[in-house]
């Protein structure tokens, strides 16, 4: 190698550049598998939307106005699930079986930043999933109105929700061995999907206080409430600033735990 390249490496490289390089790797890998990524992250929410609104709504089991509740919830859920899956499963495999992550662990940055990159990638993937789910969902519920004013809150809710989900994925992916994948879906992901405010507005849970408390513990609830406030403000929702503060707090705490857990998993 030429002297200049040597010099470039020896001089040291900014951690940001290294993290961006790893992020670029994740983008390339995501793009390569774009079809399966889409199937993984947007199919389930859209099917849920179709059954509740397209089928049950037509059969008059569900009130027509329910799509105002469910569509924002489904958008938030697709982002949340996309972020969680982008981190948890690959990490379990890479640490447990393939060891592929080792090359990135040898990059000249503090190891916890390699974990942080996973969360960043997850948040971006959440944004991407929501961006695909929203127009597709609008088609399913046949509602073409889009509140442009709500766009900043929408993006922020999805990003923060995705960030929190990515951090949860980081914790799961570094704590569970690959043999526990089934447990992860049954005991962690499935309950989260039904306690995250997707199918109901949180303030309306006043009649079920214990469930209201339970859902308040799930960060996804605040993402759902944020998206709902952005897209359908007439539906009762938690004050957006409260949702954003709670989400931000969750992100900070979960990310810190995830980075520590990632570092412990990477080093022996």
């Amino acid at each position: 190698m030429s002297v200049s390249a040597q010099a470039a490496v020896r001089r040291g490289v900014s951690p940001l550049r290294v993290v961006l390089a790893i992020l670029w790797r994740d983008a390339v890998v995501t793009w390569r598998d774009i079809i399966s990524v889409l199937a993984q992250v947007v199919l389930q929410p859209l099917v849920m939307l179709f059954i509740f609104v397209g089928v049950l709504g037509r059969l008059a089991y569900v009130d027509p106005s329910y799509d105002d509740v469910l569509l924002p919830g489904v958008v938030a859920m697709s982002g949340f699930v996309a972020a969680l899956q982008a981190v948890a499963l690959p990490l379990m495999m890479e640490f447990g079986y393939t060891k592929e992550i080792e090359d990135r662990l040898l990059a000249p940055v503090p190891i916890s930043l390699v974990g942080l990159e996973k969360v960043l990638a997850a948040a971006l993937r959440a944004l991407f999933a929501a961006a695909v789910t929203l127009p597709a969902g609008m088609l399913i519920v046949q509602d073409a109105t889009f509140r442009v004013d709500g766009l900043p809150l929408l993006v922020l809710s999805v990003l923060l929700g995705g960030w929190a989900a990515g951090a949860i994925g980081l914790i799961i992916g570094t704590l569970l061995p690959p043999s526990k994948v089934g447990i992860m879906f049954a005991l962690i992901i499935a309950p989260m999907l039904f306690t995250g405010g997707t199918q109901y507005p949180w303030p309306s849970l006043g009649k079920l206080p214990w469930f209201q408390v339970l859902t308040a513990l799930n960060p996804m609830t605040y993402a759902s409430e944020g998206v709902r406030a952005a897209l359908e403000p007439q539906v009762p929702h938690i004050e957006p600033w409260i949702s954003m503060v709670v989400l931000t707090g969750s992100c900070v705490v979960l990310t810190a735990i995830g980075m520590v857990s990632f570092r412990r998993r990477s080093l022996t």
């Binding site: 190698m1 390249a5 490496v9 040291g12 290294v18 790797r25 090359d103 990059a107």
Partner: peptide, 17 residues
């Protein structure tokens, strides 16, 4: 090929190099 160039990218080797 990507295995090689990404490894270099993680180490801050300039693109052309």
């Amino acid at each position: 090929w990507q295995n090689l160039v990404f490894h270099a990218a993680y180490h801050g080797v300039p693109r052309a190099l």
